[in-house]
Nucleic acid binder design. Sequence first.
DNA 1: ACGCTTGATAAGTCATTACTAATATAAGTA
DNA 2: TACTTATATTAGTAATGACTTATCAAGCGT
Lengths: 102, 102
Amino acid sequence: MTYQASFAALADPTRRRLFERLRRRPHAVGELARHLGVSQPAVSQHLAVLRRARLVTSVPVGRRRLYRPDPAGIAALRAYVDRMWSDVLDAYAASFTQRPTE
Amino acid sequence: MTYQASFAALADPTRRRLFERLRRRPHAVGELARHLGVSQPAVSQHLAVLRRARLVTSVPVGRRRLYRPDPAGIAALRAYVDRMWSDVLDAYAASFTQRPTE
DNA sequence: ACGCTTGATAAGTCATTACTAATATAAGTA
DNA sequence: TACTTATATTAGTAATGACTTATCAAGCGT
């Protein structure tokens, strides 16, 4: 059920760009705001959504706060998509023996 | 860039339930509406969104229309999530040799 | 302590969207 | 041809959400 929040989080283009920028190395909030061309509050709000979806974590470092990807949410998302994929493949294989009923 | 639409499509819980129900076997629109407890137009609209995201396809069969999962969109989503995952792992491994700058 | 910097939160606004009811189209049936 | 069934489309509405400005809290340097 946790992947639901992940989909909602990554549905927004700005939030997805944020996430993609974090995937390589940790970033501070202001740094992200400068690069994405949105205000600092907007970035903070987006990061809060990503955090609730377990897609990012953060640690305070001095007066800044470093955000980095959270493997937990990404793994959950990956597991979900993988299961969908294999289910679809299974259904496709089964469609040769079993005709769609109703 | 096509995964963007996939995320947006699956961000809605109703739409995700629709998609999950299709993953096993093809379904007609009315059948889906009955099971999900939403009106038929709502289902048609959701299916249109899923179709634009390349997550489902449909074929007319008599006066009904059968919807089934589209491997194209699912594969794109899977590729994206997999790349995120490996990038995060790479960054984690690199973090031992390279300290996060700025 | 004071000021500066960094980030989070609050309140308000505008745009998007998920839904319903009503209507249109099209395929099958008598 | 008329009638029914199945789905799509349109129009309107209520809720959600992404953004802004303003403000608050906290850490660091002088």
